[in-house]
Design a protein around this nucleic acid. Structure first.
Ligand SMILES: [Mn+2]
Ligand SMILES: [Mn+2]
Ligand SMILES: [Mn+2]
Ligand SMILES: [Mn+2]
Lengths: 220, 220
DNA sequence: GCATTTATTTTGACTAATCAAAATAACTCT
DNA sequence: AGAGTTATTTTGATTAGTCAAAATAAATGC
């Protein structure tokens, strides 16, 4: 039986590998899990013995098929729970990440399936993060960001890739949520500033780094 | 921060004390928590140091006010989660106990409040178990059981005090759930048998010990 | 190419929770 | 009251997960 710690390690390896089977450096994993590097080395060696990851000493770690399957199941729980908390319990999208961090380890596969049905089999969570399918398929579509997209064209926000409460609250206050139509009116890389406009409302200014967290697609 | 183990210990002390502040023997706690007695002694001494229980060596254990508050909060989560699983996710009442055993440790007080509102502030769970109020009030009404009630009178089932899947499935198959009207037609204590009737349907025979798990009130 | 910096691993220690088995205290029965 | 039984506590180990700090390997800079 996977413990909570094991589930968290696997999920973080999955997220840090950012689609594809790149090696995740131990330091990145330690940072992401908020533990010291030595702890990660110890734990990863144990997970490697269980056949859940491949550990290339001094290089990094990568999920095995078995590890990936478990990680995707945890991620599916996380994102479906977030969707439930926002859509059904009407919680603020900036607060659900921490809740889901706990609940993802407490929900059985049966409850997961019923939640999925209750929610109408959503494919993305409230932040636009893709929800892995029941059979382990995870959409890996690549989107432009407000820092990299074309300017002047009408775009639709599809995802906000940042879970911090502050950022999400800020985005919400400015109506920058999945589904919103926006247009980048100006981008000054020297100043590190992106200016955009929602419909005919007053323009919004964003740092390039903040803009990079907001993914968009061309409005059809 | 209370760990999962601490929450479980406190909840089991609460349930075993059966309303009132009787001392719970260490052996009963060990049995109920499915750990060996020595483990309970160790853990209870730690909880006593934290001020969550009073430990009278060689006699037993009892919750302090602080411990009772925490235990009631866990129990409230447990029973509201069960209610959610049955009423919203339509799970079978015989399967929700195990799920709630995990979820009770993973949901925050905020989610708890929202679940409570979503469910319409229920006062009992699907088994008829009373749900502690938000402010720590737990109904301790005493009911007759099918093994002790008057015979011949029309009664209403209010609670089934047994969480085993087998028993709950059996009760469900015979329509013996909270809300159902029944009448004890015969009780033979020598044979250990109770016979009852639901409306005009065929009679149902129960052992006295099974009948003792089903609580009833006079039909008004 | 060697010295320095950085990342990773190792070592030793700690905490929470548990068990097995021995020790002890408290009942029970005659 | 003493013997035997039962419940509880103690003692010594074990496992999972963690940190601090020392050791080592790899990469970088000049
Ligand atoms: Mn988590
Ligand atoms: Mn999300
Ligand atoms: Mn529990
Ligand atoms: Mn119940």
């Amino acid at each position: 039986m996977a413990t909570i710690a094991v589930e968290n390690y696997l999920k973080h390896v999955l997220l840090l590998a950012e689609e594809g089977d790149e090696l995740v450096p131990m330091g990145a994993l330690a940072e992401s899990l908020e533990v010291v590097p030595g702890t990660v080395t110890t734990m990863i060696k144990a997970l490697a013995d269980e056949g859940l990851v491949d550990h290339l000493p001094r290089q990094g770690v990568r999920l095995t098929a078995a590890g990936r399957r478990m990680a995707l199941n945890v991620l599916r729980k996380h994102r479906l729970v977030e969707t439930f908390l926002v859509n059904v319990l009407k919680m603020d999208w900036s607060r659900v990440h921490g809740e889901a961090e706990q609940l993802e380890h407490a929900i059985s596969d049966e409850v997961l399936d019923r939640l999925d049905a209750l929610l109408g089999h959503p494919t993305v969570d409230p932040h636009g993060d893709p929800i892995p399918s029941r059979h382990g398929k995870l959409s890996s579509q690549v989107y432009a960001t407000l820092a990299t997209c074309v300017t002047g064209r009408s775009l639709r926000i599809v995802r906000v890739t940042e879970q911090s409460e502050e950022f999400l609250r800020f985005a919400e206050e400015n109506g920058l949520q999945p589904g919103t139509a926006v247009k980048v009116t100006d981008r000054n890389l020297t100043a590190g500033l992106v200016t955009l406009r929602k419909g005919s409302a007053r323009p919004i200014a964003l740092s390039v780094s903040a803009a990079g967290k907001i993914l968009v697609e061309p409005e059809k």
